[in-house]
Amino acid sequence: MAQTRVPGMETSAISILKRAVELDQTSRFQEALVCYQEGIQLLLDVLKAVKDDSKKAQYREKITSYMDRAEQIKVRMNKLKEEGKYHEQIKIADRATGFSYESLFKPYIREELTEVWVEDPYIRHVHQLYNFLRFCEMLLKAKCNVKKIHLLTSQDEDSSSQQQSAFADIQQSLQSHNICLDIKYSPTIHDREIRFDNGWIIKIGRGLDYFTKPKGRFSIGYCDYDLRECHETTVDVFHTKHTKMT
């Protein structure tokens, strides 16, 4: 590895590990664990490239410290999961950025994930339909083996043909990727919830529609949801082995 790449990797590692510590201090343990793991890997890559023995010793000390903390978090989370008591709350502030679907859901997606349930009454209007499409795209890009997505939503009485046409297109597109989209409607649905068959349950106060309207089609955040401002909302994350999937 070229020595010229070391400063850049070190800067990235410091930034990611700083974020890990911030998340750790606010009890956002699952997100913190992901950041610790990414930052540690970068430091390990730096360690391989460094030639100076004193610097190697410093890096090893830092890596050991972060690895110990990551292991402590992992043990704590596994204990809570085993007891069915795991709960993490993420508060998204008004106008906050950095909360794309990838950023929010990635920590809870594993390779064994095969089935997803989405309950959201507001997948009706064009921007909400695009939100759902982006959620599906996120699952396709993630390291998992999703084969079926269940959507429970309400029917748009004013533009039902537009809604149904959009869903038909999404279904057909997902089918080409060997994913089945099962859609059901409920006139009384109110709760917003996303469930993974690996035990994770994510409840978002505003459902998938927690992004503000972009200022224009050519404004920052229009395409990249990590740069899109959010409405204030709360995300509750649970894990249980006894979730009844319906």
Rank of each mutant, 00 (worst) to 15 (best):
D24E: 10
F167I: 04
R5M: 14
E82W: 10
V237G: 11
N131A: 10
A57R: 14
H231S: 09
Q41A: 11
K147A: 11
M67G: 08
M245A: 12
P121D: 03
Q164R: 09
S27R: 15
I14R: 15
F196C: 02
P107E: 03
Y130G: 03
D182N: 10
Q3T: 06
P7Q: 07
A57G: 01
L113I: 06
I220S: 14
V34S: 06
I73Y: 10
I73W: 09
H242F: 14
R110W: 05
D53R: 11
H239Q: 03
V34Q: 13
F132L: 04
T234G: 07
P7S: 08
F132N: 04
T234K: 15
G98Q: 08
M1T: 06
P7E: 09
V126Q: 14
I194G: 05
D158W: 08
G216W: 00
K51H: 11
R60W: 06
K85G: 00
I63M: 07
I40Y: 04
I204N: 14
I16N: 07
D236P: 12
R228G: 01
V237R: 14
F105T: 02
T243W: 12
L43M: 15
K62Y: 07
Q37R: 08
L42S: 02
K241P: 09
D191E: 11
L139D: 01
D236N: 15
Q41L: 09
V235P: 14
H127Y: 11
T188L: 10
Q25Y: 02
E88D: 09
E137H: 09
W200Q: 01
L44E: 15
K56G: 03
T233M: 09
Y86W: 12
Q58P: 02
K148I: 14
E61D: 15
Y86N: 00
L104S: 02
S100N: 06
Q155N: 11
A166S: 12
A2V: 04
I201R: 13
K81N: 10
L208V: 01
L139E: 04
F105V: 01
I201C: 13
H127S: 14
T234A: 15
F218Y: 08
K56V: 09
E115H: 12
F135Q: 05
K184C: 10
I201Q: 14
R19G: 12
R110C: 06
A96M: 01
T153S: 10
E38A: 13
K55H: 12
Y185R: 05
T212I: 12
I179M: 03
L44Q: 15
C144F: 03
I109H: 04
V75G: 00
D94S: 03
Y108T: 00
E102C: 08
R124W: 04
D197K: 07
F132V: 01
K203A: 08
I16D: 03
I63Q: 07
I123D: 00
T188Q: 12
T26V: 12
F167R: 01
F99K: 00
R192C: 10
G199E: 00
P121T: 08
I90F: 08
